[in-house]
Amino acid sequence: MFGYAVFVAALAMFLPYLFLIQAAFAKAWGRGFGLENISLRNFHFVLFEHGTAAKSVLNSFVNAGVSATSVVILTLGVAYIVTRRLVPFGGILGFLCIAPFVIPGVVLAIGFYAAYAPPPLALCGTAPILILAFTTRFLPIGYVNASAAIRSLNPEMEEAVCVLGGSRLTALRRVVAPLLKRSLLGAWLLIFIPATRELSAAIFLYGPNTKVASVMIFDMSEEGNFEYLAALALILQVLTLPLLWIGQKALGRDFMLRRTAT
């Protein structure tokens, strides 16, 4: 059993990572393992010499952060309206939030391009269009989390606010949001982390100043710069890993599976 587990882990994790790390630190990755082949030149290059690589990492993080935040806020609102039946036919709203799940990122990107690139919006190549696309792509994850979390709250908690003179908004702000803080933070991380490496929509929508890390990595692979590619990927890894660690610390080991607010 143990041997089998190690075998699977080796195939899935150790081997790819080993070669990724080797390439990142190699002068030339084809020369194999060996002390004389190790250098930090690749990192120095992508961080300080390359024109846009460092900027692309920053772009990725800003886009992912803004998108994750807007997804969480949007889906909390929609899930609340749908679950508490505040409007007729709310189920349709819920369905619209889930729908992007079945649309391939490429198709979604082309749709966005067609809709937002021509004037008067002319958003092509700007950060807002990337953020809009990411927000749409990750709506389903946010919605499923938010609606499960809200369903776990007894509506009497909010009714108690109303009876005492508070509005729905007061109930959301003072009771619902604080009680759902943990599950919402979990949902935020679940969106933020994949959003930092989203490629399929980004590749159609980025512009000269808004290139994100995933697109950068893709370009490097096209050019055959595997050492730089590996170094950039490793930087991305090192930056996101702490978030996973924070998530587990703050929310418990199984935060990715968390479906209820406790």
Partner: peptide, 18 residues
Amino acid sequence: PEKRRMSMIFQSYAIWPN
């Protein structure tokens, strides 16, 4: 409800845990 100046006690108590 918020304009009626009433109070209500619920079956679940509805005490806010936060």
